[in-house]
C-alpha cells in the first residue's frame, strides 16, 4: 500500500461519509454544506489521480457556483434551523430509500470492485485534456452544451409565460398566493 493509495482512500472515505451525511441529515442547509465537503473530496480524488485541472474545475463550478446556487435557493425557502417534523420523510420512506440506496451500492460495488487496482497516478496535462475534450469527445461535449442551452431557454420561457399574462399587480398577487400555498400557511 503506497502513500498514494492511502491518500486516495482518505479522500474517498471523506467523500463517502460526507455524502452519507448529506442524504441523512435532517437540516436542509446542512445537507447542502455536506454536499460541499463531498464535492470537495471528490475534487481531492481527482487531484490524487493527477487530473489537476479537472479537480480545480470541479471546485470552481460545483462548490463555487452550483452549491452557492443551491444555498441561494434554500435561503429563498423557509429553511428552518433545526429539524422540523412536517418536512421530514416518514419512517417507511426512509426505510425504502435505505434499501434502494443499499441495493444501488451493492450493484455498483459488485461491478466496480473487481476492476479496482492500486492507484496509478498519471499526470494529465491540460493540453492533453483539451485535445481529448475537443477532439475525441467534441460531439458529446457540444450536445451536452446544447442540452444545457435548451434547458436555459426553457427556464426563461417558463418564467416569461407567467409575466406576460396579466399586469404586474396580478403577477405579484399570484406569486404571493403561490408562495403562501407553498409554505402551507393558508391562514
Amino acid at each position: 500500500m503506497t502513500g498514494l493509495d492511502l491518500a486516495f482512500a482518505a479522500v474517498g472515505v471523506v467523500a463517502a461519509a460526507s455524502g452519507l451525511l448529506a442524504v441523512t441529515t435532517r437540516h436542509v442547509v446542512h445537507a447542502a454544506l455536506w454536499l460541499v465537503v463531498c464535492l470537495g473530496s471528490v475534487a481531492g480524488c481527482y487531484l490524487v489521480l493527477g487530473a489537476e485541472l479537472v479537480a480545480l474545475v470541479q471546485v470552481l463550478v460545483y462548490v463555487g457556483a452550483v452549491v452557492v446556487l443551491v444555498l441561494f435557493a434554500l435561503m429563498l425557502t423557509r429553511a428552518p434551523i433545526g429539524p422540523r417534523a412536517e418536512i421530514s420523510t416518514s419512517r417507511l420512506h426512509r426505510a425504502l430509500a435505505a434499501v434502494l440506496g443499499a441495493g444501488v451500492t451493492v450493484l455498483l460495488a459488485s461491478v466496480l470492485l473487481p476492476l479496482a487496482h492500486p492507484v496509478d497516478r498519471h499526470e494529465t496535462d491540460t493540453t492533453v485534456l483539451s485535445r481529448e475534450l475537443f477532439g475525441t469527445w467534441v460531439w458529446p461535449f457540444e450536445v451536452l452544451s446544447l442540452l444545457l442551452l435548451a434547458a436555459l431557454v426553457a427556464a426563461l420561457a417558463v418564467s416569461r409565460v407567467g409575466a406576460r399574462s396579466g399586469d404586474v399587480r396580478d403577477g405579484a398577487a399570484r406569486a404571493e398566493a403561490e408562495l403562501r400555498t407553498a409554505r402551507g400557511d393558508a391562514s
Binding site: 460541499v36 489537476e52 471546485v59 470552481l60 462548490v63 463555487g64 452549491v67 452557492v68
Partner: peptide
C-alpha cells in the same frame, strides 16, 4: 501548473463562508 484556475476556484469557496454566516 494551473494557478489561474486554482485562485479562482479557491476564492469561490471563500464565498461559502459568507453564506454560512448569513444563514
Amino acid at each position: 501548473p494551473a494557478g489561474a484556475v486554482f485562485v479562482l476556484a479557491v476564492t469561490a469557496v471563500g464565498i461559502l463562508g459568507t453564506l454560512m454566516a448569513g444563514w
